[in-house]
């Protein structure tokens, strides 16, 4: 047990105590944001408050959040190594997985659709649905199934960009009558949010799948890793 670890432990305890104190000492807020959310719900175009906050009241946050996801993919693309992908290298040689996939895939798609649809009145929404979609992609990949459209770079990139582009486009289009950025007109709010959610689901799913696929291949042996690295300039 080095001095470093002891001091680290002591400091973390101190930080935790300070935080706990802060939590205990907290005065209750005077501002009542939930009430405001509830009051504005009828104008939001959806029935579930979390979705309303995410995609209407604070939709700008969500826009930037999608940008963060896209960023991760860009960096992954930039750091992809020169060697060609070997799809079979990632697949686990497991016939059972392939067999189960045939059953699971439709189910996963249905669940994703349901989550997306549910978002408007109960917990759920684009990110949750997108994650489930991505899970399907990962499973496919693990099972060694290759699909042509997943390997098509142009199509893939278009899919990645679709969500953010739609979001931005809607945000800018609604400005034409003179409203601020991302102000949905009341009568179209529900539709617009649904369109955004749909495209976001697709893009988020694709983003997560490509993040999984783009990660540099794994080598167990450091020496081997170094060797491989040496080969690729």
């Amino acid at each position: 047990m080095s001095l470093r670890l002891v001091s680290a432990a002591l400091l973390c305890v101190a930080v935790t105590v300070a935080l706990a104190w802060a939590v205990l000492d907290r005065p209750l807020p005077e501002e009542n944001l939930p009430d405001r959310v509830a009051a504005a719900m009828p104008e939001s175009g959806v029935d579930h408050p979390v979705t309303a906050v995410l995609l209407n009241f604070r939709s700008y946050d969500t826009l930037l959040e999608i940008a963060v996801l896209l960023l991760a993919v860009v960096v992954a693309l930039a750091l992809r190594e020169a060697q060609p992908d070997q799809p079979e290298a990632m697949g686990l040689d497991n016939p059972l997985l392939r067999a189960v996939m045939a059953w699971l895939l439709p189910l996963i798609l249905i669940v994703a659709g349901f989550l997306l649809w549910a978002g408007s009145y109960q917990p759920g929404g684009a990110f949750q649905a997108g994650s489930v979609l991505a899970a399907a992609g990962v499973l496919l990949r693990l099972a060694g199934v290759t699909t042509a459209w997943l390997d098509n770079a142009t199509l893939m990139r278009a899919g990645l960009a679709l969500g953010l582009l739609t979001f931005l486009g809607v945000g800018l289009l609604v400005m034409i009558p003179g409203a601020p950025f991302l102000t949905y007109p009341l009568e179209y709010a529900g539709t617009l949010i649904l369109v955004i959610e749909l495209t976001l689901t697709l893009s988020i799913g694709l983003t997560l799948i490509s993040l999984f696929r783009l990660t540099p291949p794994y080598a167990d042996d450091p020496d081997e890793a170094r060797e491989q690295a040496g080969k690729t300039p």
């Binding site: 700008y60 950025f181 949905y184």
Partner: peptide
């Protein structure tokens, strides 16, 4: 500038 037309603590 009120994004989405929502006033501050509700909107951004």
């Amino acid at each position: 500038y009120e994004l989405g037309g929502w006033e501050a603590p509700l909107g951004i």
